[in-house]
Amino acid sequence: MKKSIGKKPAIIPTPVLIIGTYDKKGKANSMTAAWGGVCSSDPLSISFSVQRTRHTHEALLEKKECTISIPLAAHVKEADYFGVSSGRDRDKFSDTGLTPVRAPSVHAPYVDEFPIVIECKISNVVDVGVHDLFIAEVVDVLIEDTWMSADGKPDLQKAPFFFYNPLDRSYYKTGEFLMEGFSTSNLFK
């Protein structure tokens, strides 16, 4: 039997997205966003929500470009810090020892130590309460070659990513292969 737990953000797992921008002063800044994911395949787009009070929100509206870096489990503390501190009064890169790098295709920084970087241009912003939903068209994806398998795909067993559980405000690691996707078309007929 299922039990009601009330109205909660129960999409689990929730990805950990590190949104990179330059602020008005040109300082590299990143924030953690847990409300996000792929929202269109054509044009390939990712959506993520940012509260209007966040320092990153202003930069996203002004610059209309960003990166999304995907961290490994080894950097869970740094990723959490990016979400609980503000670039208004902290240099999060300096504080964590992580390295900002100017993305090649958009005017935004990414986190060099994180193996996957998605370069994006903001295509739409939707008011959804205390957050704005940013829809960002993917310009390019950069993947650290040491995390690639022989077939040119990210090897998730080599690169243990992690996700956020909004119900208990905790992080958990991924990495176990289960099966190939889109492989069950004849299984249940």
Rank of each mutant, 00 (worst) to 15 (best):
M1I: 02
M1P: 04
K3S: 09
S4W: 01
G6Q: 00
K7M: 13
A10L: 10
I11D: 04
P13H: 05
V16P: 00
T21M: 06
N29I: 06
S30Y: 07
T32Y: 06
W35D: 03
G37R: 03
G37E: 00
G37P: 03
G37Q: 07
P43E: 08
S45R: 00
T53Y: 11
T53H: 05
L60P: 10
L60H: 06
K63R: 15
K64E: 10
E65L: 10
S69L: 06
S69R: 03
I70W: 10
A74N: 12
K77Q: 11
K77W: 06
E78W: 03
D80N: 15
V84S: 11
D89V: 14
R90E: 11
D91C: 10
K92E: 07
F93L: 05
S94K: 15
T96Q: 08
T99W: 11
R102T: 12
S105T: 14
V106A: 02
A108S: 04
A108G: 05
Y110K: 01
V111F: 02
D112E: 15
I116G: 02
V117E: 02
C120V: 01
K121G: 07
N124G: 07
V125G: 01
V126F: 14
V126Q: 09
V128I: 15
D132H: 15
D132P: 13
L133R: 01
A136Y: 00
V139W: 04
L142G: 00
I143H: 07
E144Y: 02
E144D: 15
D145C: 05
D145P: 11
D145I: 03
T146Q: 13
T146H: 12
Q157K: 15
K158D: 01
P166A: 11
S170N: 12
G175D: 04
E176L: 14
E176D: 14
L178R: 05
M179S: 10
G181I: 12
T184N: 13
T184Q: 13
T184F: 15
S185A: 13
K189D: 12
